[in-house]
Design a protein around this nucleic acid. Structure first.
Lengths: 172, 172
DNA sequence: AAATATATGTCAGGTATGTTGACATATATT
DNA sequence: AATATATGTCAACATACCTGACATATATTT
């Protein structure tokens, strides 16, 4: 009964200056996190495991409370995933000498190895993205950022998206 | 029975050059997406709704298949969320003239308005992040990227994280 | 010493967003 | 007429988050 009232004009940069950056962030981040997924699934792990493993390796001896603060999730949510990482021998908990309530989290050798493997995969993508920023992107810093994000996106996505978002769709 | 074998050394840049970028991406992206959450929840919407709404506004008249390709989710998953956006009057579907099977997605006035509101929130953070790249970050493009990502992170997180990740934790 | 606060863990149930597999329908194409 | 394509829908399930309530061990305060 309502007439559809469909708006057929695409949103333009006049509406919002940073559409391109907004979208690049979305796709770049997706490619970035997806790198690790395949390896993680071999262990029956997900992204939640990855985050915990990463920060435990990066800040060995951090407490559960600190980890919760970093990840901004609830202890119940952390608990389940952390338990699996402990059972699989990737992380250990040690009682703090100065305060017996605190449980300090440390990676094991196994945990360190996996964390490095995952980080190096992500690092490789980042390295390539930096390397492929061509020098005529320098004049404006925003261009370097834009180029970086663009380069972070999977090749398979990049062409498809560029076509869709830049050439656009006919507005009849 | 197993001795813990806890590793107490933090991972360093020698292990992996881009730890800093990896972490900045994580926190920057989190701040970026969290901007919209509060507004979305007023409508009973989540991030899935946001993504659909965004691309429907950005590419009005896109098909369901194209949207699935962009979001890389299943049609069953899309369906549930899209249905809510249609029922709430943010998106309409119109039959394609040239192919009656296709349902073209368009925002309504209401949908356009919400999409713009959300984009402008995110754009504001991006704008500020660009503006606060100080000029001595220019020499290397990577510095501009790093500064940008750093500036994208919520103030409240930034100081806490900087302390935790740079000054580190005592390794006894 | 007793009361309280802190750090952690756990039980139980709920939500949002994704998945797979099977099947239905309408429209195009061969 | 047969097949392919675009979409929708039913059902069951997985992951990763949530809230609320309660338990336990250790520190700190009174």
């Amino acid at each position: 009964m309502d007439e559809p009232n469909a708006i057929k004009m695409p949103m333009s940069n006049e509406d919002c200056e940073n559409f391109r950056i907004i979208e690049l962030l979305f796709f770049a981040y997706r490619s970035f996190v997806t790198d690790a997924d395949e390896v993680l699934s071999e262990y029956g792990f997900g992204r939640a495991h990855h985050r915990i493993l990463h920060f435990t390796n990066r800040i060995p001896g951090l407490t559960v409370a600190e980890l919760l603060d970093i990840l901004k999730i609830t202890k119940q949510s952390l608990s389940r995933v952390l338990k699996e990482l402990i059972e699989s021998g990737h992380i250990v908990q040690l009682r703090a000498d100065n305060d017996g309530r605190k449980r300090l989290l440390y990676p094991t050798k196994k945990g360190r190895k996996l964390a490095l493997k995952l980080s190096q995969m992500q690092s490789k993508r980042i390295e390539t993205a930096f390397a492929n920023i061509v020098s005529n992107d320098i004049p404006r810093q925003s261009h370097a950022v834009e180029a970086f994000l663009q380069n972070m996106i999977d090749r398979s996505d990049r062409d498809f998206l560029d076509q869709l978002l830049n050439e656009g769709v006919s507005v009849d």
